[in-house]
Design a protein around this nucleic acid. Structure first.
Lengths: 341, 341
DNA sequence: GTCCGATCCGATATCGTTACAGGACTCGAC
DNA sequence: GTCGAGTCCTGTAACGATATCGGATCGGAC
């Protein structure tokens, strides 16, 4: 029953026109208080709810934005999603979460979906897209890319300080005495993806410290999971490669690494130090607790949503914005050779 | 430009009526191949996208379901959300994630929102709702409650084997030699919420083993976070309460507990054993790895979505269904007094 | 040659809301 | 007494799709 009440019914019950009801619902001015009361009373009595589909059709807005992430159950993306949903809710927007599974195809699908006008805008936390896809991003609806750095992309972009953060993390390891630093990275195939940028930071820090880069210490992971982090450690140990620290491309990988080292009976940080990137919530609670680079996700999420809102409201005219978040290195037990109190 | 192409434009370009275009789009039978080709070609050429709002209005369906969880960035809910999004996507549905922050009010808000016909249905992973709210759940659109057990609720329900799982976890601790088992629980105030049910299982296992329940070993947490788990351990130790095992109401709490024990210099499992509930992905990678009760979320998520789809398709006529998932105890290092290989 | 069912296509009428434009009325100023 | 500027309300016409139903066409059976 409640589902079938329309604005017409309310109008009839309140003795006004549908338009007046609409005005009341949308808080337009120029409605006499007594009239407003009557309408509200009728709405209440009939248990009227606006039909969002009809409103969407008429206004051309949906009040919904899309968020495309590889998987919400990865800690980093989960936390990002939570912050974005909160930031959007603050502005009266709902968020549809699409899982792209880190594949280029599905990320493009999300773009196309959004073109259906299903969403007012889209936040794309890319992984698979590369500079070759730049042209495909040249779409006529609001899009914000979050995370990866796509060189000269045609859309708004909120990026991480990948190079600088990775460099600082590596420098921290060096300062703590590490010399043979493994990097667990992804495929760094196009110079601008996350893996590649963090690798650049790593190399740069090594160079700055006068440490020669050893290709044998670079491990390319297929995916950024705890599983793959643990497996990589096992592999390194099995192959007998000596190392005294590991810089992990993400905290999730680092958690797997901590586990892998424990399984191998290697003590952290005494024998091997570990640092990650992202500072996810779990990192504070691992044993030992995990040092990490904190790129300030909260600000990034807030910025992404606010950029998107600007596009939605002001259209595609304005010039493209690029925001790179700040960062700081969070030093915890995993890189602290002085035993904690 | 792409945004303004309507089905009319396509019809004109293809030399057919809008209805025929609609038939093609919706894969209706009885459209000649040559006609279909022409229409598809026109769609492609004009870069036409259906206007979802218009379709929703006309059909009364949105192809979107709501998922209300406390927070997507808690591992358990993140993993649940991921599974539900996947299960829904398989059926051609999108998912809007609402964060209720574990408050009763926001959970009810989600229910009301859904009444806007914004979603075709709602999956509510409750925390704050209690039996007192049973009547409020008597709504006329598809709802599935996921997780908590609301006695005799008027809606479909996918529940966990809370009592049985908790009992099995506790029994496992006892079998491993524990006698003074702390339970870290939430407020067990209404006999049917998660905390209360898991507490029942705990007490039952104690009773079965002939161990007297010691109220001093029951700790009520305000929230189920790693933070609160760690704090609880610190508090117990500070108060000098002796214990040889901890059963945590969730794995997230347990991870905090592992961390807290490490900070206190207490060895796991030698001095204190720990077991959680949920078997989140992280539990396999903690140090030591965490034993847990696995309620098979994948099946739960799948079941929740499938129940919801049934409601959406078949209406509210059918009788209410209640599904309780199976479970098994996953034994890992944190409860294994025999050192792992 | 007729008839019938299957196949193919389209005219019309909404779905429930809001944009737009304008009508009626009030009130104060001159 | 007239005018203008609010204030308050409403009639009409979409927004872009699909449900419904009926009309046309075609091929085969008799």
């Amino acid at each position: 029953m409640a589902g079938k009440v329309t604005i017409q019914d309310v109008a009839r019950a309140a003795g006004v026109s549908p338009m007046t009801v609409s005005h009341v619902i949308n808080a337009h001015p120029h409605v006499k208080d007594s009239t407003r009361e009557r309408v509200l009373h009728a709405i209440d009595k009939l248990d009227y709810r606006v039909n969002v589909a009809a409103r969407n059709l008429r206004t051309g807005r949906t009040g919904t934005i899309g968020l495309a992430v590889p998987e919400v159950d990865r800690p980093y993306f989960g936390q990002l999603a939570a912050e974005i949903i909160t930031a959007a809710a603050r502005r009266g927007f709902r968020v549809v979460v699409e899982q792209t599974g880190a594949s280029r195809e599905t990320e493009l699908d999300a773009l196309v979906l959004s073109r259906n006008r299903m969403y007012d805008g889209l936040i794309l936390s890319t992984v698979g897209l590369g500079p070759a896809d730049t042209e495909l991003l040249r779409v006529d609806y609001p899009v914000v890319i979050l995370g990866e750095r796509i060189f000269e992309g045609p859309v708004d972009h909120v990026a991480m300080p990948n190079v600088e953060g990775a460099s600082a993390a590596t420098r921290h390891l060096i300062e703590q005495g590490a010399r043979r630093i493994v990097m667990l990275d992804g495929a760094a195939n196009d110079d601008v993806n996350m893996s590649s940028l963090r690798f650049q930071g790593y190399r740069q820090a090594l160079a700055d410290a006068g440490i020669a880069f050893d290709g044998g210490l670079l491990v390319e992971l297929d995916e950024f999971t705890m599983q793959s982090g643990a497996a990589a450690v096992h592999d390194l140990v099995t192959r007998g490669i000596p190392f005294d620290a590991i810089f992990c491309v993400t905290d999730t990988v680092a958690i797997g690494v901590l586990r892998g080292l424990a399984s191998e009976g290697i003590r952290v940080p005494d024998e091997v130090m570990v640092i990650g990137f992202d500072n996810i919530r779990e990192s504070e609670f691992t044993v030992p607790s995990l040092s990490s680079v904190d790129p300030d996700h909260t600000t990034m999420a807030e910025k992404a949503v606010s950029l998107l809102m600007n596009r939605i409201e002001r259209g595609s005219g304005a010039s493209r914005e690029e925001y790179v978040s700040g960062f700081h290195v969070v030093k915890r037990e995993s890189t602290s050779r002085i035993a904690p109190a």
